[in-house]
Each structure stands twice: as C-alpha cells, then as structure tokens.
Design a protein around this nucleic acid. Structure first.
Length: 907
RNA sequence: GGACCUUUAGCUCAGUUGGUUAGAGCGUUUCGUUGACAUCGAAAAGGUCACUGGUUCGAGUCCAGUAAGGUCCA
C-alpha cells in the first residue's frame, strides 16, 4: 500500500479515476430485475453550450443523486445528451456565414443544413466532455441528440399522431414575431421588459365636422397608417354621440376610419379612445375580428415599414419610422403632446429585441392531458421541491393557451406536412386544411412527392424536448424500447432543473408523458418523473445574474484546475440551499478544497498511526472492534457517526443537499478531526487502547468516505483504495453498499448514547479551560499546571479521562486539591480549575472581565427567576422545559457565586 | 394589477413541530508550527433576528399589517 502524500493534489487522481471508471463500465445502467431502478434524464444542454456555473450546480446535484442511488443498491442510470436548440444553433452558424459575407439563403436550405451538421460534428457538444471533468457519472453509451434519426422519428410521429387526434391545427393568428430571427415565437419565449419611450397624444379629425377632433394616446405612431378604426367604450358618455362617425388617419395613405364601440377599451387609459391597428396588436386584432375590420399590415418581416405606411415612412426601420412618424404628426399639427413614458414591452428571448405582434400562418397545438397534468402534481404523484413551485405550475395550466409550435427556421424537425402543388398557402380555408387531397400529413409523406410541396417550417425545439424522458429510451420503436429498457427505467426518478423552464419544459414533459406512455395504465405509470428538484439561480457576489456580457461568470474549468472537481462540487453544493438563489463566492469553493485536504490528511494520520489491518469488509473491521473496551469518546464518535448517517439520509429524502454537506463537514471536521483524532493521540500511546482505537478510526473513515462519495467522488475513491477498503479491480462507486446504523447495531455494535453526553461535558470543560488559559496569556500548547477542586463524582470523570484531558487542555499536570485563594480560577461543569502560575495578566482587566461576567449572569438569573415565579409558566409549560429552567437557574447561581468569590480574592 | 420569495453577526447563509444564554463558514483581533493537515490548531470580539401590532406561560419561528429588495405572470 502506497504512503499517502502530505497534501492532496487532485489533478492526477481525478483523471486516473475517471478513466478507470469509464474503462470498467461503472456508469452503465442495465436492466436488472433484482434491483430497483433509479433514473435521471439530464436536462439536455444546447449543443452550442459550454459549461457554466449553472450547469455545474445542476449536474453536480444529479451526479450526487445517481451516485447515492448506486451506494443504496439501486440500478442507477443517468442519461446524457444535447438539444439541437433551433434558433441558438442556427444563429451560431449564420454568424459564421456572415463573416464570409453570406447568409443562409445564399446557400439554400440543403447546403445550409449541411453546414450546421458539420459545425455540430466539429464543435457541438463540448459541454458533455466538460461534464466529465466534473465527474459526471452519465451512461455515455446512451448519449442522445434531439436530431438523431430515431429521436426525430419520435418527434415527427407525435406531430402526426396529435394532428390526427385533432390537437394540431394550422391557423392565421397573431404571433410573437422576432424581426431579427425572422420567426414566430411562443409566448414563453417572450420576456416582458420595461422600456423607456414616449407617449404620443394624437388627434384625428372628424370627417363630418372638420375642425373637430378625437384624441388618442399611443406609443407607436409609426403604426398609424395601419389604423382601421378608433374604438371607445360603449358606456363612455364622452363619446356616445360619436359612435358610428368617421375620422381621418392623420398620416400615411389617407383614409376615413370609423369610430366604433367595444367594451375591451379601457376608459381610464389616456383619453378613453383607442386607435385600432389589427395587424400590430393582439387586443386590436381581437377587436378587429369582432367588428369585421380590415387588416392593414404596414411592417415587413424584418421590422421595416412597407409601402402601405406611405412613401414618407416606407423602407424605414420601425424605430426610425417611429421618430419620423412623430415628426410628420408634428408638422401636420396632429401631435397634441409628447411625454416620456415607460411601459412593458415583449422582447425576443434569443435575439433580445422587441417582438412584433404579427398576423401569420402557424401551426398550433392544443395541449393534451391538461387536467391530468394538474392532478399529477396536485395529488402528489409528482412532487416538486421546493413545493411552492407547484403553485406556479398549476397557475400556468389554469391559464394555458394554445402553443405555437412552428418556427420559420431551417435547423430543426421539418414539419411532416405537404401541400398540393399550386395551392396558395396564404389563402387556405378550413375546408382546404381538412381536405387530404390538398394537405397531406404523415411520417412517410405522400407517395407522389412530385405533386406536393413540403411545409418549410420546423418545430419549436421544445416540441422535441418535451419527449425527452421516453424518446431517449427507444420510444416508440418496440425493439429499441426493449433494448434500452424503457419498461424498466420509465417513469424516471428525479428531474433536476431550474424553475425558469417550468413552462417551457417541465409542464410539457408531464403532458407528453401522460399522453404517450403506457396508454390505458394508471397515472402513476405514465408520469415522466416522480420528483422534481428546482435549483436556484447562481448569481455573482453582488447578486447579479451571471452573463457573458457582464463577464462575471467564472469558467468552471478554471475552478476545477484551481480547487479540483471535488472542491468545486463540495463548495457549490454547500452554498446552494433548497430553492433559493445563490450568491457565488469563490472562497466557498476554496473551503471545498480545504475540506478535501483535511480528509486526505486525516486518512494520512490513520496510516501513520499504526499498521493497517484487514479493512476489506465491514465485517472484518467490526471483528477487530471490542465494544467492551470502549471509553466515552469511542461511544461518542460512533454515536455521532450514526447520527450523521441518519441526518444525511434525511437530507436525501428531503432534497436538502447543502444541509447534508454541512452535517458531514461538521461531523468530520469538528467531531472526528478536532476531537476524536486528538484524543486518539493519547489513546494510541497506550497499548491497551491502541488496536481498538485504530479499528474505530478505520470504521469511521470507511463510513465517512461512503457518505461523502456522492459529493466528492474522486478523493473518496482514491482514499478508499489507499486505506484498503476495496480490493483491486473493485470500486467504491460501483461495488459497495452503504449500511445503516441499525444494520451495524444488528452486527453487535451497541452504542451507549449517554457516554456521548459525557463527552459533550468534557468538550465544554476543555474549551473553557483553553479560554481561561488564553485570557491569562498562556499559549494553548503550553504545558500548564492545574489544581482542580471537584466533587468525587466530577473528579471520577476527570480522572478516567486524564491522559486525554492533559493533551486537549495543554496541561502538564491536573491534580485534585484545594483551591488557592490567590490563583486564577475558572468554574466549569466539572469542578473549579485553578491555574498555578504567576499572573501575567492585568489584574484590573481581570476584575473588569469578572464584573462583566457577573452582570451577564445576574441578568440571566433574573430572567430565569421571573419565568419560574410566573404561575402561568409553571402550570402550563411541559415538565421537561420546567426542569431545564430550574437546572439552568441552579447552574447560573453557582457560577455567579464562584465568580464573586474570585473577584473578592482579587481585592 | 395578481402571485410568490427574501429581510438573522462586517459578508454569505443555517435555524426542523413555538421552549435554556440564536448557530456555521468567511472576514477581523490575539496566541500557537507537540511528526495528519498553516489548505492547520486554540481563543476572542461581533446580532433590540427589517418594522408595527396580535395570538401564547413563552415568538427569529405562528397570524395580520407596513417597508425595502427580488422573481414570475398579466
């Protein structure tokens, strides 16, 4: 067995183990009826993506769950993959084309797609390699891409199926149009942002009474040429007389437009009159429909104004057009007022420009299984963590709108619809759409392809990723499903994702799972996952979102190089409490590295303390432990180990990862290293206690490595072998099972919990004596001499632990005896400790300290007395609380008396 | 406009079903390298738990309201 080096160097260790694990197939998930499955589907990162801190958190948590599941004896399978990310990927390739002064139309659809595939082959999916550096134990043999041929078949098959079921239709409706990406977007891809602009008050001259006007307020004067009416509220007395009259459009091609009444108008806003531009506003469009108004579209797809806006505006960009329109209004005298104004404007999530409401033909989906999807979460078949996100989810489903699933892109799943040649796609009627001679929908396409033209549009990326939990398992191909273990691994266990994609992805996956998997079977069998854990968003130290443009996002690979993957994992998890946003602080990652080093050195200490014995199985270690020889510290450390084991168990059940890390940190650093290892140094000197002490260390370290492994997999695997817990060719991560405290007590390891409380007392005494020394200028490690005045019972405890106490308190001697009236003294739970030495400290300062202490004690005594003399408290409080208060009072009084005696002795 | 979240030590955060004198890490100050670890150890200072009321024998914790900050939906 190699000697453990003085400090831990993660780089080589991490590389070595990852390669070994891969080589040995440790990550592979196989159908195994003897084991319960545990499945996680990775939220597929964009194929263009690179690893961010968000990914680090998200994927570390998934890896923790998967590795823990393995240690619990489950068949764990974590399926990785990437998303083709329609707009994002197409934008990346178009950007490259632009450098060559070309655009995608120059190449044509086919050539362009070849380019995208080539880009994907060369540069796509880097993120999956980066995840390996983090230690992700994904089953890489199952890696999927949403544009893979079988996956695409599933996506298109679903389109055809839903079309035939009547869930999908084509309609000319208002959509969110991105003038930069030149495609429709779903409502979820639109971000509302406050935008500063102007509110223009514009007057429209009445046709019947020239010189009389009606005024409206608008933020978008450039759309005035598209106005087809002015609307007022039918109950608005200011305008009742005007309804039915006509006004003139103040700019653009001249026209007379009617004043109409519609109850959708807000009487309170502006003048109470609203200009109606059906082509450029959703509300206006709806009003237009009700009143059978024409639609005048004054914008081109790219957001420039067209000839319908009139020669003065045509050709201008919409923002330049806005300025120009305002000028024109001013010149003609139609502009009454112009005031600064802030309102919410929808922005394209991808291109970050204001979207345009635009009337276009699109494919729409009426969501299936909406009610079941609500029930699945409401009734607890799917549990959200934190639970509060279920409200957000349910609220969205309550108000669900049809989903615009078509995108005017090339990169994506081309919609499997063919139109009969010669058909004008802009003028389809409902009858046309229902006529299979005119519109063909199928996976294979029409037999006589030459007579048909395929739909140009592709599907929204989310209309492929909503099938992720089962299309990745071969669905719907029976042979592939059999091969991939669909029936075994589905429903999956846990989804780990961000709350920002509840609508985009989580809700849609639930509906898809319910609709397409295990038809006819109960809901619990069709849900895509049982638990959903929502991570927080990682922010920088100032609380800002991390973004490329701010440059405030550290590169995780740099952090791995600096602190090791284990350090990064430990640090990021420790600062990620359940469901709260996270402020990233690099010093926490450093703490993770330091913890690794501490673990490393504790194991090193064990190796240096005595020969290694048989550690190959828990049974072999237990055989070397003799509970009959346990002292209080032995009982206590095992008691704490088991308590920590149970606490970590609880944390996993409740998805409290950071609490688990904190419990392990506290146990290992404070209970084990700071106390048990230190007292071991005395025990190891004594041949009577040495072997037992080493065996206990072996036992504690083994269990600790197991508990820590999901969080810090590399170093634990390394130490596992260094300390001889695993035979050559076996792995902690694959071949070991975590045992519970009850399993160990079943094997004869009985812990005396009362001993643990005795150690708590000893710790408190040691801590008090150390502070006492420090106050008197004695260095902690200085061998001081103490005389202790104590009862027989107290001295009995001290005497039984004398060797350890001397070491812990830094004492040359601890003798029982009478107190010297002049020497400094501290009153502990185990007698009064007298420090035999010349007082170096300032007596006045010491007196002040004592006085302050006495005052504090007096305050607490008064408070406790008041409580105890309150009859309501005495009669109503539970006995345990009452007894605690009485004991507290007695302790406080004793302490105060001792301090007063000491103060008097000082003179 | 509606919903949700946050407010505890200088900083970042814990604080289970209400119950002794509210905790941790970092930072600060003091002391210390006795062979696991200076990526360390010991100790100290530091908090009217945002504010105002209420319920209760007892509130950081429960309820109502207010303020500030944040997120989502319209």
């Amino acid at each position: 067995m190699a000697t453990i080096t003085k400090s831990y160097e993660p780089q080589d260790v991490e590389k070595k183990w990852y390669a070994d694990w891969l080589q040995a197939g440790c990550f592979t998930g196989r159908v195994n009826p003897a084991k319960a499955p545990y499945t996680i589907m990775i939220p597929p990162p964009n194929v263009t993506g690179v690893l961010t801190m968000g990914h680090v958190l998200n994927n570390t948590l998934q890896d923790i769950l998967i590795r823990r599941a393995r240690l619990e004896g489950r068949e764990a399978m974590w399926l990785p993959g990437t998303d083709h990310a329609g707009i994002a990927t197409q934008a990346v390739v178009e950007r490259e084309l632009r450098k060559e002064k070309k655009n995608r139309r120059d190449l044509g659809r086919e050539k362009f797609l070849e380019k995208v595939w080539a880009w994907r082959e060369e540069k796509g999916g880097i993120i999956l390699k980066q995840l390996q550096a983090l230690g992700a134990s994904c089953d890489w043999s199952r890696t999927q891409f949403t544009m893979d041929a079988p996956y695409s078949q599933a996506v298109l098959g679903v389109f055809v199926d839903l079309y035939r079921k009547g869930h999908i239709y084509r309609g000319k409706r208002m959509v969110n149009w991105c003038p930069v990406s030149l495609t429709a977007l779903s409502d979820e891809e639109v971000i509302m942002k406050p935008a500063k602009g102007f509110l223009y008050q514009v007057r429209y001259e009445r046709v019947d009474q020239p010189g009389q006007f009606i005024e409206v307020k608008t933020t978008r004067p450039e759309t005035i040429p598209g106005d087809v009416a002015i609307a007022v509220h039918p109950d608005d007395p200011r305008y009742t007389a005007l309804i039915g009259k006509k006004v003139r459009r103040p700019i653009g091609p001249s026209a007379e437009i009617p004043i109409i009444a519609d109850s959708a108008v807000d009487k309170e806003f502006g003048s109470g009159a609203l200009k109606i531009t059906p082509a450029h506003d959703k509300v206006d469009f709806d009003i237009g429909l009700r009143h059978k108004l024409p639609v005048v579209d004054v914008l081109n797809a790219d957001g420039t104004l067209n000839e319908l806006a009139g020669p003065a505006l045509a050709g201008l960009d919409r923002f330049a057009g806005r300025k120009k329109a305002a000028e024109l209004l001013k010149e003609s005298g139609a502009l009454v007022k112009e005031e600064p104004y802030e309102n919410n404007v929808g922005y394209s999530e991808r291109a970050d420009v204001p979207i345009e409401p635009r009337l276009t033909w699109q494919w729409w989906l009426k969501y299936p299984r909406v009610e079941e999807a609500k029930a699945a979460v409401r009734d607890g078949h799917i549990r959200f963590h934190p639970e509060r996100w279920s409200k957000v989810y349910l609220h969205w489903l309550e108000n669900i709108q049809d989903w615009c699933i078509s995108r005017q892109l090339w990169w994506g799943h081309r919609i499997p619809v063919w139109y009969a040649k010669g058909l004008d796609k802009e003028k389809l009627t409902a009858a046309d759409l229902a006529d299979p001679k005119k519109v063909h929908v199928s996976l294979e396409g029409p037999a006589d392809k030459d007579n048909w033209v395929q739909e140009d549009d592709v599907l929204d990326t989310w209309a492929s990723s909503w099938l992720w939990p089962f299309a990745t398992l071969g669905w719907p191909d029976q042979a592939a499903m059999e091969r991939d273990g669909y029936n075994y691994f589905y429903p999956t266990s846990t989804l780990v994702t961000g709350p920002d994609i509840i609508f985009f992805w989580v809700a849609r996956m639930i509906m898809a799972g319910l609709e397409f998997t295990h038809p006819g079977e109960p809901l619990a069998k069709r849900i895509p996952f049982k638990d959903v854990y929502f991570t927080g968003i990682i922010r920088d130290a100032q609380g800002r979102k991390m973004s490329k443009s701010l440059g405030n996002s550290p590169d995780p690979l740099d952090l791995i190089a600096k602190y090791g993957a284990d350090g990064l994992r430990f640090g990021i998890v420790s600062i990620a409490p359940q469901g709260q946003d996270i402020r990233f602080q690099e010093d926490r990652i450093e703490t993770g590295k330091n913890f690794s080093n501490k673990l490393w050195n504790a194991c090193r200490f064990r190796q240096m303390s005595g020969d290694m014995a048989d550690n190959s199985t828990p049974g072999a270690i237990l055989a070397r432990i003799e509970p009959a020889k346990f002292d209080a510290d032995d009982h206590a450390i095992l008691d704490r180990l088991f308590a920590t084991t149970r606490e970590v168990d609880r944390c996993f059940n409740q998805f409290e990862f950071s609490a688990a890390v904190q419990a392990l940190y506290g146990f290992f650093w404070n209970d084990f290293c700071d106390w048990y290892v230190e007292v071991s140094k005395a025990k190891l000197q004594d041949p009577a206690t040495k072997a037992n002490c080493l065996a206990i260390q072996d036992f504690v370290l083994r269990q600790t490595l197991l508990l820590l492994h999901p969080f810090i997999p590399f170093i634990t695997e390394e130490l596992w072998h260094q300390l001889g817990y695993g035979a050559e060719g076996t792995f902690l991560m694959r071949d070991t099972q975590l045992e519970s405290p009850s399993q160990f007590s079943g094997r004869g390891l009985q812990i005396d919990a009362s001993a643990a409380s005795q150690v708590e007392t000893l710790k408190a005494v040691v801590s008090q004596v150390r502070a006492f020394k420090a106050e008197h200028g004695e260095a902690a490690n200085k061998a001081s001499e103490f005389v202790v005045e104590a009862s027989d019972a107290h001295w009995g405890i001290l005497d039984a632990n004398l060797a350890k106490l001397k070491r812990m308190a830094g004492a040359a001697t601890i003798a029982r005896g009478a107190m010297s009236p002049s020497a400094p003294v501290t009153v502990t739970a185990l007698g009064s400790w007298n420090l035999i030495k010349q007082l170096k400290g300032d007596p006045a300062a010491e007196k002040a300290r004592l006085q302050k202490e006495i005052e504090t004690l007096a305050k607490h005594i008064a408070g406790t007395e008041a409580r105890l003399s309150n009859e309501a408290f005495v009669s109503k409080a539970p006995p345990a609380v009452l007894e605690g208060a009485r004991k507290q009072l007695a302790d406080l009084r004793a302490k105060k008396t001792e301090n007063e005696r000491l103060l008097a002795a000082l003179g």
